[in-house]
């Protein structure tokens, strides 16, 4: 009996974490797909998003789930600034330069966050803090369920945006052939800014949800970024469904590792899986063979 409740908990807990990873990975995947840009500082946007949510929720008393929307908007604005000031200038130059700029951005964001909010651990207190759903042996926090729901809504909206709207089609065109789409009259610089802002907004939402579920400090961004990359690789580059399945599988695998092997294995197991996948299938589990 205890065993089955642990199983349910592991899956739910993994799914809740996985959802946050899915948001981050989808944003990264969009940015990578359209701009061919690798932004290792994406997780810092998550961290900033968490702090923005924290500020709205505690200092101004805004409902935490409304703060998700506010954080999305503000982080998108920050994303626009970052794209215009830094990445646009190195885009198309050497690939390693993007990695260097991202590392610089990590240092900048982390330390600005320390200067603004201090380096102590913080949490966003949700109004449903003590509510949980009883499922026989296991009980699940309502906040996890809400987080999962919010992620589903955001993802549906995103798929609609990419598949059905004009700007979404332009994004798809740019991701396929940027030069040709420029010839078709698409302003690809605008598409780049829009894509980056969209990815940043997803990270902003992920940040507030992260802050509701976990305590956070200015340094929480780095590992989720790397994990989001791992998920993208698991799911296949440029594949949104792949990122979603990859994210959920990843979250559950991580929780299983924590429960069976102990918490120091949380990160290592994930990377081991990643390296094995890369050795066996360099194009990812669901990716297409190519290049």
């Amino acid at each position: 009996m205890i065993y089955s409740s642990t199983l349910v908990l592991t899956i739910m807990w993994g799914a809740a974490i996985g959802c946050i990873y899915v948001l981050l990975a989808t944003g990264l995947n969009l940015i990578f797909g359209v701009m061919k840009l690798v932004n290792f500082a994406h997780g810092e946007l998550l961290m900033i998003g968490a702090y923005i949510g924290f500020t709205f929720a505690t200092a101004l008393g805004v409902n935490v789930y409304v703060a998700v929307l506010l954080s999305m908007g503000l982080v998108a604005l920050i994303g626009i600034g970052v794209e215009r000031l830094t990445f646009r200038r190195v885009l198309g130059s050497e690939k390693l330069n993007e990695i260097f700029v991202s590392l610089g951005l990590i240092l900048i964001f982390d330390n600005v966050a320390v200067l603004l909010w201090g380096d102590k651990s913080k949490r966003i207190i949700s109004p449903f803090e003590n509510l949980s759903l009883d499922l026989g042996e296991a009980s699940i926090r309502v906040d996890w369920l809400i987080a999962i729901l919010i992620v589903i809504v955001i993802l549906i909206a995103l798929v609609f945006l990419v598949k059905k709207t004009k700007i979404g089609m332009a994004m798809q065109a740019t991701s396929q052939r940027s030069q040709t789409s420029m010839l078709m009259g698409i302003n690809i610089e605008r598409i780049y800014v829009f894509t980056f802002a969209l990815g940043a907004a997803l990270a902003g939402a992920a940040g507030v949800l992260y802050g509701i579920i976990f305590p956070f400090n200015p340094y929480v961004g780095a590992l989720p970024t790397i994990k989001a990359f791992a998920i993208i690789i698991l799911g296949g580059l440029g594949s949104i469904p792949g990122a979603i399945i990859g994210g959920l599988l990843y979250g559950i695998a991580e929780q299983t590792a924590v429960i069976t092997l102990g918490s120091i294995w949380r990160d290592a197991v994930a990377f081991t899986v990643l390296i094995i996948v890369l050795v066996l299938r360099p194009e990812g589990l669901f990716g297409k063979r190519g290049e």
Partner: peptide, 26 residues
């Protein structure tokens, strides 16, 4: 493993390897 990978994959595998080594040593 790494020689077949592109720049950012390689960055991740090496980063991950450092995390794995740290975990093993602990």
């Amino acid at each position: 493993t790494c020689v077949r990978l592109k720049a950012w994959f390689l960055g991740m595998v090496t980063f991950g390897f450092a995390v794995i080594t740290e975990t093993l040593v602990s």
